[in-house]
């Protein structure tokens, strides 16, 4: 079943600077999609449009068969209810403990019962290997730990679609693997994942499909094997061979 459909999407930060040009995608429920491409190719911008941080200038976003009206706050709200996003810079709330960070949105925004939220938050933190860090504050944690808290926080919202925006790019090299391991655990849970990443080996391992982007346009879409070993376009082959060499 098609869960998310993007049709002819254009987006820009200012009229003279188009970021996305005519992007179309279809994503099935439970699929794991990775978006790759050079910096500035518009990968992260797609995610920002999907959560409504940036409004498209043209085109449609269709979530579960309903087109999102970006002008309507309630439509944006219900779209965000189906999605959760993890940022490159973790963006944990600095004034809250780890547990509170995970609990705050389900508790105060979705108004779910506290005992249930707390149990769930603790469960997700345990899955992320943070069972002993409930009362720590973000600034007492390493980058890798913070990013795992951010993952637990996103999961606690029980999203249908989880967006991961370069979640390992701001981490020290030795912490990348602990976060990737956490995402591997997620990838078996049946949540739709949209991953923007530069970790090519990881992308190849977990993805169902890979989208190659360049200069605001989709260059190629295919299975990991197709993209990494038998890309049809020259641009994609160049990008892959550059990455593999380095």
């Amino acid at each position: 079943m098609t869960q998310l459909e993007i049709n002819g999407l254009f987006a820009e930060y200012s009229p003279s600077l188009p970021i996305l040009e005519d992007v179309s995608l279809k994503i099935e429920t439970g699929e794991i999609i990775s978006i790759i491409g050079p910096s500035g190719s518009g990968k992260s911008t797609i995610l920002r449009v999907l959560v409504g941080l940036l409004h498209p200038s043209q085109g449609h976003v269709i979530v579960n068969g309903t087109e999102v009206n970006y002008k309507s706050p309630s439509a944006l709200k219900s779209m965000r209810d189906t999605m959760a996003m993890v940022f490159q810079q973790f963006n944990l709330f600095q004034n809250m403990s780890v547990l509170r960070n995970v609990m705050i949105a389900p508790l105060k925004i979705k108004k779910e019962p506290e005992a249930e939220v707390e149990a769930r938050a603790k469960e997700y933190l345990e899955i992320m290997g943070l069972g002993e860090k409930f009362d720590a504050y973000p600034d007492q944690l390493s980058g890798g730990q913070q990013q795992r808290v951010a993952l637990a926080r996103a999961l606690a919202l029980r999203p249908k679609i989880l967006l991961l925006d370069e979640v390992t790019s701001a981490l020290d090299p030795e912490m990348v693997n602990e976060v990737l391991d956490a995402i591997r655990v997620l990838s078996t849970k049946g949540i739709t994942l949209i991953i923007v990443s530069h970790e090519m080996a990881f992308v190849r391992e977990v993805s169902d499909r890979v989208i190659m982007m360049d200069d605001g346009k989709v260059v190629e879409i295919g299975t990991p094997d197709e993209i990494f070993t038998a890309a049809k376009t020259q641009r994609c082959r160049d990008f892959i061979s550059n990455i593999i060499q380095h």
């Binding site: 409504g52 941080l53 709200k77 965000r80 940022f87 963006n91 709330f93 949105a105 925004i109």
Partner: peptide, 16 residues
């Protein structure tokens, strides 16, 4: 401002 964005994405109202 990324604290605002993050709260925004989690459906926090401005007041909250």
């Amino acid at each position: 401002r990324n604290q605002w964005e993050c709260a925004d994405v989690m459906n926090f109202s401005r007041a909250r």
